[in-house]
Write a protein that binds this DNA or RNA. Structure first.
Lengths: 151, 151
DNA sequence: GTCTTTGCAAACCTTTTGCAGCTAT
DNA sequence: ATAGCTGCAAAAGGTTTGCAAAGAC
């Protein structure tokens, strides 16, 4: 007898799903992961992608960035770091991505401080803080260009 | 002729829905708003709550805090400010709520700085930043107590 | 052989939408 | 009278689940 879900058997599909989430910088949805892998693994099912991503989440191998346009988006980079979400095309980017404005690095520094303060105070008043998510919403440079061209 | 949705007529139900979102500190879902108002407005429909919240969102009278346990949560306090979300009971709290640890005020200060930096750099490299969302995930003191009592 | 994993399809649940009737102006 | 607003029920769309077959050990 054991705690349910504790005995884990090896699965090639599970490996492939985790590798895909970890290796992409696209902060993918389950559907996106499925679409990418479907070509190489014809027998794959979307339900399997969901089931395995939920496993990864439990063991903290993957985190959720949040829901964008109705789809949950995931990240294989699990330590807290800020994201930029384009409200136009739905793209999710790491805040330290090379395409983003250089002034944003100042923001990064401040947020590092925040994390440090939190680490000290995380048990105050009986609260437990597990994680921080910071998301900047806006319009990415591609979409800004598109709008300017159309108008 | 006019831009669709521009001509707005007065509606008591709309007023009531906005007032409910603005007056509560619960960061409610559409369903919660509906449940609260249903007693006073028997003819109310959930679809009307959704439709009106979406209007408020467009005119930025209300913002989304994010999706918690599959339900979108809203806030009538529209200026960016951090939130705490309990992963156990789903409660959403403002980060400056009196129940929260005093050390958290240091975090608040840092995040104010972040907002200032952003305001300066928001148009760099063609990007436009509209909004910032910071969420701290953890377990609220009530749920920590519950777990300790049970164990 | 036993227990885990998976595909398929159905179920679930929140949110959106079409339409006919109602309300505000 | 002319729009906009609402209730109802149906549809939509992402995610979960039951079950029997396939796979890992």
């Amino acid at each position: 007898m054991s705690i349910p879900g504790t005995d884990r058997k090896h699965s090639k599909k599970r490996d492939a799903i985790l590798a895909m989430v970890k290796s992409t910088g696209s902060h993918p949805s389950a559907q996106w992961v499925y679409d990418q892998l479907k070509a190489d693994i014809p027998g794959l099912s979307l339900a399997t992608v969901y089931r395995n991503i939920n496993l990864f989440r439990q063991e903290e191998a993957v985190v959720s960035v949040g829901v964008v346009d109705g789809e949950e988006r995931f990240d294989g980079r699990v330590e807290p770091h800020p994201h930029f979400v384009c409200g136009c095309c739905g793209r999710v980017m790491d805040y330290d991505a090379p395409e983003l404005p250089p002034s944003f690095s100042k923001v990064m520094e401040k947020l590092k401080d925040v994390t440090d303060i939190l680490r000290d105070g995380r048990q105050d008043a009986g609260f437990v803080i597990d994680y921080r998510k910071t998301v900047f919403n806006g319009i990415c440079s591609d979409c800004v260009k598109k709008v300017k061209t159309t108008a």
